[in-house]
């Protein structure tokens, strides 16, 4: 076993090892999408975020345009404050609606953005005024039973819109809008 053979094999080993790491990072992981597009921040408040988690995707028309960066509770309004990082290539109107959706029945929870017709765009730090909270199954069932029992017009629940249909209605929660 002479030196050059050993060197050759060690070289091959290190090369394929690094190639494996590279393959894992690029093909298996999402290295490209993480490091490439710089982004800007938008905020939105929801009555209930349901199962939304950190790093959940933000999609517009089904395309991933960003990720959830921070989730916390607003101490004054007791609403969930979600901070989103949006890729710099995408601009959204001031009257964009942010809804909490589930992909499939048991799939992951994400934020869907529906663009409106406003001429002005949201800038870095802007706040999305119109939001649609998550469908909480228990409240849905409770609402349904209550409707059935009362057999009259359903008593509206404070602040919460709970649509039974798959298409989210345009019920907005009370939230200030930052105009830039």
């Amino acid at each position: 076993m002479n030196r050059s053979t050993i060197d050759l094999w060690v070289g091959i080993f290190v090369v394929i090892g690094i190639a494996a790491i590279g393959f894992l990072s690029l093909k298996v992981g999402n290295l490209t999408s993480v490091s490439s597009a710089p982004g800007y921040h938008l905020e939105a408040s929801f009555d209930n975020i349901g199962g939304l988690k950190m790093r959940a995707p933000i999609k517009a028309a089904g395309v991933v345009v960003g990720r959830v960066e921070r989730i916390d509770l607003d101490p004054q309004t007791y609403q969930a404050r979600v901070s989103m990082r949006i890729d710099r290539g995408y601009q959204f109107t001031r009257d964009t609606i942010a809804s909490i959706l589930t992909s499939g029945l048991l799939g992951e929870v994400y934020i869907g953005l529906d663009v409106g017709g406003d001429t002005q765009m949201l800038a870095d730090g802007g706040k999305i005024a119109k939001t649609q909270s998550a469908m909480v199954l228990e409240k849905l069932i409770g609402q349904f039973l209550f409707d059935k029992a009362a057999s009259g017009p359903p008593a509206p629940m404070s602040g919460n819109a709970a649509p039974g249909a798959a298409k989210p209605a345009a019920a907005a929660s009370v939230a200030g809008g930052a105009t830039k």
């Binding site: 790491i21 894992l24 990072s25 093909k27 298996v28 992981g29 999402n30 290295l31 993480v34 790093r55 995707p57 991933v64």
Partner: peptide, 14 residues
């Protein structure tokens, strides 16, 4: 491959 790439995060997992 598509689902895999969406779910595996470079910093977090790899």
């Amino acid at each position: 491959w598509g689902n895999m790439q969406a779910a595996v995060d470079f910093r977090y997992d790899i």
